[in-house]
């Protein structure tokens, strides 16, 4: 029996939970079809998380691409099908990816497996990021440096902790609703690896508590900067990301296992922590940095 997992029309970090809620009912070896035919919007988080979803299945899933030609072109331009074809049986024909040089995709979907991949990501994005963050988001040069550092550290978490490869994507958006028309740049980094709880459980640095679960593990790592490595210099990457996001009025959310925590700025109405979510392997991180307010 093949289960159909329907992708919502608007796919972002929050609505991806609807996908996982459907998936939770089916064991990893069950055949599933991920149906994105009616999806009209997908954020970098949505696209990279869809790829990691396929990695969590022992039975290779099928994928139905968006029906709308414009959306299909966008997904191709973002590099989605290049990697989807490695992990899904993609149904029907999809367009060939074209150059993203003139688009708002700052970094198309890029695999992160090893340390060299992080260098590639930084090399590819830093000049364009500087240009966009300075000209469109009106941030000072120090903010653009911090942005590339945050991106580098987020990608390194995959190399250092996940135990398997993941993907990163970066895009600029105009946030009509939440930011009153201001632009924002969004980084999504998703993997289907160990996740925070299992990573910390492999270390004596794991806090001894009866409350130990995915949410506690996320707080331990993201808020308290604890790493599974004993080296006192470890854990600064996520701490640095948190500091950067806070300084520039941004938002950080990290999901792992069955929990999600968020550093929520005043312009957003997300909640700081969600528990008892549908289980999903690995870690999924999103960073949003808004255009500097005119006020």
């Amino acid at each position: 029996m093949t289960a159909v997992i329907t992708v919502p029309s608007s796919l972002d970090d929050l609505s991806f939970e609807l996908v996982l809620d459907q998936l939770a009912a089916h064991p990893a070896d069950a055949k599933v079809i991920v149906d994105a035919r009616h999806c009209t919007f997908a954020s970098p988080y949505g696209l990279t998380a869809l790829l990691t979803l396929a990695q969590t299945r022992s039975e290779r899933p099928a994928f139905l691409p968006p029906e709308d030609a414009d959306k299909l072109t966008y997904w191709a331009r973002a590099g989605f099908f290049r990697y989807a074809e490695e992990v899904y049986d993609v149904q029907g024909s999809v367009p060939r990816p074209r150059s993203t040089s003139e688009s708002d995709v700052l970094l198309e979907i890029t695999p992160v497996v090893k340390s060299d991949d992080v260098h590639t990501v930084v090399e590819r994005i830093k000049d364009k990021a500087t240009q966009i963050l300075t000209n469109r988001l009106h941030l000072i040069s120090r903010a653009t440096m911090g942005f590339t550092m945050a991106l580098s550290e987020a990608c390194q978490n995959i190399v250092e902790h996940a135990g398997r490869g993941g993907w990163v994507m970066v895009q600029v958006y105009q946030y009509r609703k939440r930011l009153g028309g201001r632009h924002a740049v969004v980084i999504a980094v998703c993997d289907a690896g160990l996740g925070f709880r299992r990573s910390l459980e492999s270390s004596p640095r794991r806090p001894l508590t009866d409350r130990w679960d995915d949410g506690f593990a996320l707080e331990t790592a993201v808020v308290n900067g604890v790493s599974r490595y004993g080296d006192p210099g470890r854990g600064q990457g996520l701490k640095g990301i948190r500091g950067y996001v806070h300084r520039w009025d941004g938002k950080l959310s990290v999901r792992s296992g069955t929990a999600r925590i968020a550093l929520v700025p005043p312009w957003d109405d997300d909640v700081p922590r969600r528990d008892n979510l549908a289980p999903f392997a690995g870690a999924q991180l999103q960073i949003t940095i808004p255009e500097k307010s005119a006020a």
Binding site: V122, T148, M149, S152, G233
Partner: peptide, 15 residues
């Protein structure tokens, strides 16, 4: 050197 991230600063400078 172009840019430096936290992990590299920890290795090259702090350590």
């Amino acid at each position: 050197i172009g840019m430096m991230d936290y992990s590299c600063a920890d290795e090259v400078v702090a350590k």
